[in-house]
Structures are given as structure tokens and as C-alpha cells.
Write a protein that binds this DNA or RNA. Sequence first.
DNA 1: CTAGCTGCAAACAATTTGCAACTAG
DNA 2: CTAGTTGCAAATTGTTTGCAGCTAG
Lengths: 136, 136
Amino acid sequence: MSENIEQKCLAKGVKLTDQRKIIAKIMSESNDHPDVDELYNRVSKVDSKISIATVYRTVKLFEECGILTKHEFKGGKARYEELNEGHHDHLIDLKSGEIIEFVDEEIENLQEKIADKLGYRLVDHKLELYGVKKKP
Amino acid sequence: MSENIEQKCLAKGVKLTDQRKIIAKIMSESNDHPDVDELYNRVSKVDSKISIATVYRTVKLFEECGILTKHEFKGGKARYEELNEGHHDHLIDLKSGEIIEFVDEEIENLQEKIADKLGYRLVDHKLELYGVKKKP
DNA sequence: CTAGCTGCAAACAATTTGCAACTAG
DNA sequence: CTAGTTGCAAATTGTTTGCAGCTAG
């Protein structure tokens, strides 16, 4: 089964401080995509002494360890989400700001094919759809 | 044929000042995707008195008028490019930073289909591929 | 122990804004 | 004429960093 964030830190030789444990816990419990400010708010409720600098540092560290991914959606601050095995893309509701995750095999393959055709090996990609809810 | 930037401004009732004309001209002559700083450099060569604030303001105005599009590629400043009828996406060479434009009907359709399936009308999207050149 | 972490406040980088003087229409 | 624009410098916003003290392993 999928190991949790603390186990991943252990595996990477990353020191597990109290503040990191708290940030890790909050992130694994979050089903949305909080920005650093929001994450800082949530973290502060558990330990009000944690500084925002630590949150920034931790979030970057976790990203480098492959524990979190960073999203830079349109015109805003960076948002983070836990990185689990299943890759997915995002559809952002322009009215509400809600973020819907989706997976589509076909589109993944197509991207590989395009990169290949252009003479590149695909390393990473970003697909974001922006839309508004349809009337039924 | 496609109208030029100045015509578009006229049509939108946007006042055409000297600085806007210069910025418009530079942008239509640019085949790359300059960030504001780079654009400011190019513009300064024509009129060294134009301030960077004006460049920021103009670029935002032009974006709102549908004259330019803004790209926020990974971890950098915003880059701009003229918006012509032909939509395209980008592949970014992670080694050189080079940006390759491409069009793929199939992927465009697929995106519509996905949004639709999720109950949304697609308003905009962003697809960026990040890759490295393949050895032949 | 000690390499690595933390909080704090100051530093940065990109972008925005208030204001008084100017200019396109 | 006058609403809108500009240049300047100061202000904001998101993020990073130097440093002295603290802590996990």
C-alpha cells in the first residue's frame, strides 16, 4: 500500500521535526489544493508558533522529495497537493474556484505522442481546463 | 485578413498613445514569448523614456482586449505573445528553455469532451509539455 | 554532539498603485 | 476641454534568506 508522508521522509533521510509532522498531517488530510497561506492558517491552529517561513521551506522540501506537487494555476499563489501514485489533471471552475480532478488515459498517451513527434522525450506536463458549469 | 494591433485598439475604443503603438509594434514583430522585462528592454531601444510601469499596464490592457495572451510557465515571470486566430499549445525544452509551439486537433477535441463529461463548458485551457531532446 | 532545523525580521523579485503633469480624441 | 494616460517612486504581494539559538538522531 501507499506509504504515508512520514515514512517517505524516513526513506529519504529527511529529519522529522514536529513542525514537519504537523504540516505533513495537515496536507494528507486535505482534499483540496491549499496555497501556502491557507496551509499556514491550518497549521497555526495546531501550533501557533510555526512560522510561515517554515511552511514555505517545508513545502519546497516536500516537493523535492516527491511528496507534494506544486500547481501554479492562473493568476494566483502556488497551491500544493499530496502526490500519490495516480496522476491526474485539473479542471478549474471559473465561477467558484472549485478544482475538479480528472484522469484521462487517452490524453496522456496523446501528449507522449506529440512530444515524440516533435523529437522530445516528455518529462513533465501541465494540463489545466478552465470552465463554467453547464446548465442541465 | 487578420487586423493588426492598432486596428484592434481602435475597435475597442482604446486610446492609441505613442507608447502603446511602440509596444504593439514590438509585440507583433516578436516571434518569441518575451517576459515584461525583456519587452521593456526592446521597447527602451525605441523610446528610452517609456517606464516599466507603462509596459505592465499596457500588456495587461492588451490582454483584456484579447490582443495578447499571458503565459505563466513553470517558475518564472509571466511571458506574453500576440494572440492570433490560430490557437496553439507549447512544449518547453527543459535544457535550453526554447519554446516550441504546436497544434493538435485531436487533443483540443479531447479536452472539450472531458469538460463536457464533467458537466462544464470549456472556456479556456492550458497545456504545456516539458521535455528534453531525444537522441536521434 | 552536530548537521540540520526553526523563528524572526529583513531582503527580494515581480507587479501594482497614488499622484501630479500631460495628451489623444 | 477632459477622461484617460504616463513617469516616478513608493507600496504590495508572494517568497526567500541570514543569523543566532534550538533539536533530532
